[in-house]
């Protein structure tokens, strides 16, 4: 590809990265969605993943939770087990009319501690109620989730992640189709996680939101365009380049694409 090569500030040499990506290539049915991504997410960092549609942002999160096996390269978690990761998928495959109430949904966040058989005592229940208070849903404990709006349900999912108490939190477009007030409240929760030195990685579209709330950004267009401080990563030249790359993508599948050039020796 034309243009100057990006030097990625968080290289493999960074010792304090909690997730390290090494020459990572991801895709579905042999069609790569991400090429040769290397770098690391610092422990305690708050990073936005930004890029045009089809840039491989969601794919990257799926690979980090282990739901997608890399075509090439690998994801290394440092000092983390899968139980230390909380993941909010873009469209959670949740049955929204399932007969379960808000508190029970939030209590699922305790799964790592209670598993299949252990009972949930008063202390764990109180933590779930506190989490509901943090997301502004006190008093909703016994509401069935079918009776909630999309924004309220997203608050419930954030409360469940609060209860999960995970060290790495992955959010895939958490504020899409969510009203402004809910977004502001949930951004407060994200800030709180950042203050607690948890690592948060969020796929986002709203660049203003990214600039004002996320210190670090990974700009992705199937290849990494920029990765570093948000002000640098979202510089106009980088955005133009990301858009130019997206325009080069075929509309449907890239069956005619040859093998990846850089994969060859």
């Amino acid at each position: 590809m034309g243009g100057p090569r990006v030097t990625l500030p968080f290289s493999d040499a960074m010792a304090d990265s909690i997730v390290r990506l090494s020459d990572l290539t991801l895709g579905y049915r042999r069609h790569p969605a991400i090429h040769h991504l290397s770098g690391g997410f610092r422990d305690g960092s708050l990073t936005a993943v930004v890029g045009p549609n089809g840039a491989g942002k969601s794919t990257l999160l799926k690979a980090m939770v282990g739901a997608l096996r890399p075509l090439d390269g690998r994801v290394t978690l440092h000092g983390l087990t899968p139980a230390d990761i909380a993941y909010l998928p873009q469209q959670a495959e949740v049955e929204r009319d399932f007969p379960i109430d808000v508190l029970d949904t939030v209590l699922l966040g305790h799964w790592r501690r209670v598993g299949i058989f252990r009972s949930i005592g008063g202390a764990l229940r109180r933590r779930a109620e506190e989490a509901l208070a943090v997301v502004g849903l006190s008093g909703f404990e016994r509401r069935p989730i079918a009776a909630l709006s999309a924004g309220q349900f997203q608050r419930v999912l954030f409360a469940r992640m609060l209860v999960q108490d995970a060290r790495l939190i992955l959010l895939d477009e958490p504020f899409t189709a969510i009203d402004a007030r809910t977004t502001a409240d949930l951004l407060d929760v994200v800030r709180r996680w950042h203050g607690e030195r948890r690592t948060v990685i969020a796929v986002l579209h709203d660049l203003e939101q990214v600039r004002s709330h996320f210190p670090d950004t990974l700009l992705l267009a199937r290849e990494p365009i920029a990765w570093g401080r948000t002000v640098d990563a979202l510089a106009p030249a980088n955005l133009v380049r990301a858009r130019a790359m997206a325009e080069g993508w075929p509309e449907k599948g890239d069956d005619k694409a040859g093998p990846c050039r850089r994969a060859e020796p």
Partner: peptide, 12 residues
């Protein structure tokens, strides 16, 4: 039934 993705992630 309710949230299969969540069980995959946390269920062990």
């Amino acid at each position: 039934c309710f949230d299969p993705g969540f069980l995959r992630a946390v269920g062990g």
